[in-house]
């Protein structure tokens, strides 16, 4: 049986693919395609963040009593990434490929190290801590992530 957080891990990969598609469109100078790809990427990221912040993290915090630990840091990193989303969006609006590449490169490192912390540490903690609720919580996570 797959773990509770498996859909979130899978969704990380999906977001990576959308990130690459947007970056490639900018590199090729295809600004209208870049607009579509970036919008799809940002929408997927927001879906992911919202799913974690509104469903997974509160359940984890309630089950473990850890309100100030890893989930707080993950929320903080979400905010930092949202800052970079705005910069990528602004760079794309002004058709500035250099500024886009710089913000995208920064986001990539931020996003990947964030994902690794989640996949290596937080998700396993959630899988263990939320074992009892997995049957109820699993479908909610999957449904939220499949909305787009």
């Amino acid at each position: 049986m797959s773990s509770l957080t498996e859909p979130l891990r899978h969704h990380h990969q999906h977001c990576d693919d959308l990130f690459v598609a947007a970056e490639n469109a900018v590199r090729e100078g295809d600004w209208s395609r870049a607009r579509r790809e970036l919008s799809a990427f940002l929408a997927a990221m927001e879906t992911h963040f919202d799913t974690e912040e509104e469903t997974l993290f509160p359940a984890f915090e309630a089950a473990t009593g850890m309100n100030m630990g890893p989930t707080r840091m993950m929320r903080h990193e979400h905010a930092q990434m949202r800052d970079l989303f705005r910069q990528m969006d602004a760079a794309l609006e002004s058709r500035d490929a250099t500024a886009y590449a710089s913000a995208a490169d920064t986001l990539l490192v931020m996003m990947q190290q964030h994902n690794m912390k989640e996949e290596n540490i937080l998700y396993p903690m959630c899988d263990r801590g939320l074992d009892a609720q997995a049957a109820a919580l699993g479908p909610v996570l999957r449904e939220r992530l499949e909305v787009e």
Partner: peptide
């Protein structure tokens, strides 16, 4: 070339919160 610009960005980001946008890595 990845570590130094990224750490710079990260520390500035933590320092200024959401009030300002620090220069990104290639900057």
């Amino acid at each position: 070339y990845k570590i130094v610009p990224f750490l710079n960005w990260l520390h500035l980001q933590n320092l200024c919160g959401m009030r300002a946008m620090p220069p990104t890595m290639h900057q």
